[in-house]
Design a protein around this nucleic acid. Structure first.
Lengths: 149, 149
DNA sequence: CTCATTGCAAAGGATTTGCACTAAT
DNA sequence: ATTAGTGCAAATCCTTTGCAATGAG
């Protein structure tokens, strides 16, 4: 799949909803959709600044709102005191491993876990809608360097 | 276990650490340890105010810090924009089922899940510190009444 | 041209911190 | 007496909002 296809999808979404396609919106979308990372609003702003593009904080947040509504981006809260955003591409339902030393986020998907989660919910009379698993630990890199010890 | 035993445990913790046992600290501890609920800092303050006890906001937060360090209370973040605190009594590691219709929170514990979570982390080179699973769904009550549909 | 977006700065909500005052040991 | 805790208000951190200037369609 072409890298810019996702951006075009966003452009299409904006047009369909009569929302102006501004360079700022596209710039924010590019950071988020063309990379495989979890960005905080602040990181996005810094990333853009590093690229020489200046986008106001408010605009970053407002664009993130649109991106989430478009379904192209997903909002995550790992209890760090701020939110992170990631492309919704590919992995529909996945879990997160968060390194408490360096903040790195690793994603994975496991069918057995999905099934177990549904069964556990049923056992308590719940009909599952979704679930979220975050495992906090130390990644292999940080284990080597001894960071956060 | 008697209701006041937990409070005595907290008093003991304070003494052992040369921390003064103040009426404010005990008051906050009582709200949290003598009930089966998840409280926000704000709710604790209101609860105390309703009881005619006035405790400053800063003191509530500072006491929560001590309670968490003592291991008697656990801090939770369900992505609501603020933190919740609950007694750690009994269930050392447990998961949460959150009804998206009525907001009810149900807790449960499952060893197989704990083990699976550790194994999944290892498979990705992580050393597990802890994990958090929140299953979002509809509780049996709401399924009957059709709330949130 | 017209209306939505932008950016700045002020406002907000949750939590923290500085500091003079009070209380526990 | 000592030393730490308390309350208040000011300060932070992340995020939202008001509003005049700007830009997309």
């Amino acid at each position: 799949m072409e890298r810019d296809e996702v951006i075009d999808e966003f452009r299409a979404y904006l047009r369909e909803h009569n929302l102006p396609v501004t360079p700022q919106r596209v710039a924010v979308a590019e950071v988020l959709l063309l990379r495989d990372r979890h960005f905080s609003a602040d990181e996005i702003e810094n990333e853009l600044r590093a690229q020489g593009i200046s986008v106001g904080t408010a605009t970053v947040y407002r664009t993130l709102e649109v991106l989430v509504r478009s379904g192209l981006v997903v909002e995550r809260d790992f209890g760090e005191g701020f939110k992170r955003f990631e492309s919704a591409r590919g992995m529909p339902q996945h879990e997160h491993l968060l390194c408490t030393a360096c903040g790195r986020v690793v994603e994975f998907q496991d069918d057995r876990l999905d099934r177990m989660s549904t069964l556990l919910a049923e056992a308590h009379g719940f009909v599952t809608r979704s679930h979220r698993l975050v495992i906090y630990g130390i990644c292999s890199e940080c284990q080597k360097t001894g960071s956060g010890l």
